[in-house]
Write a protein that binds this DNA or RNA. Structure first.
Length: 197
DNA sequence: CACCCGATTATCT
DNA sequence: GATAATCGGGTGT
């Protein structure tokens, strides 16, 4: 039913992957049941970009970003939250990733609401820390291979017209704030629901 | 609705 | 010791 994305998908320019991930499914098989949603917002982080965790070189925390493309990079931030990225870059780069910033739930919505302590509606997964909580993604998923894992992976979803993709500066960063490397699906479309505050 | 701020901790300097 | 790719609650207009 889900057609998993292959490693070749992740072996493209990080900006291209960030745009092409819009509309794709992210699937997490948990003991409690399947949870899945459609990606509606992403951000690209390139290795030569001061806002990228890989910018200053490899460390224990960011090592997944320097590993094979198609792996997950999950990190803990602000003492509270996990953020989920896919490692993606072309052959000319040694690192790079795409932060998943928002999803629209499609399966396991009750499980997600429970994980979010009763929160429902668009607030269930309209932020990078929110969607990891909703899906049940934590540090144990860091560096997992999304191209082979049966537990956590990304698969084909709905077609998104390139003309419906909006780009803007990235959220919450202090470096390279001018680079317009945040991507989301246009308002006036069904996913606009997720861009409400 | 816009702005402000505290919580909380792994990681790096 | 400072910082951080966030969140949610609070205050004021």
């Amino acid at each position: 039913m889900f057609k998993r994305l292959a490693q070749s998908f992740y072996t493209q320019n990080t900006l291209t992957v960030a745009k092409q991930l819009l509309g794709k499914h992210i699937i997490h098989q948990t003991p409690l049941g399947i949870r899945a949603g459609i990606i509606v917002e992403t951000e690209a982080y390139l290795v030569h970009d001061p806002a990228c965790h890989a910018y200053k070189g490899i460390t224990q925390r960011n090592s997944a970003l320097f590993g094979p493309v198609g792996h997950a990079y999950v990190y803990f931030i602000y003492g509270n939250h996990y953020c989920f990225n896919t490692v993606a870059h072309d052959e000319t780069a040694v690192a790079g990733g795409v932060l998943i910033r928002a999803i629209q739930p499609t399966q396991g919505i009750a499980l997600m609401a429970k994980a979010r302590k009763g929160i429902s509606g668009y607030q269930i997964s309209n932020g990078p820390g929110k969607l990891t909580q909703a899906l049940g993604i934590t540090r144990v998923h860091n560096n997992i291979d999304l191209t082979t894992s049966k537990e956590l992976f990304i698969a084909d979803g709905i077609y998104i017209d390139p003309l419906d993709i909006i780009n803007s500066p990235r959220i919450g960063i202090s470096q390279a704030r001018d680079l317009p490397w945040r991507f989301y699906i246009s308002s006036n479309k069904w996913v606009s629901y997720f861009h409400k505050k």
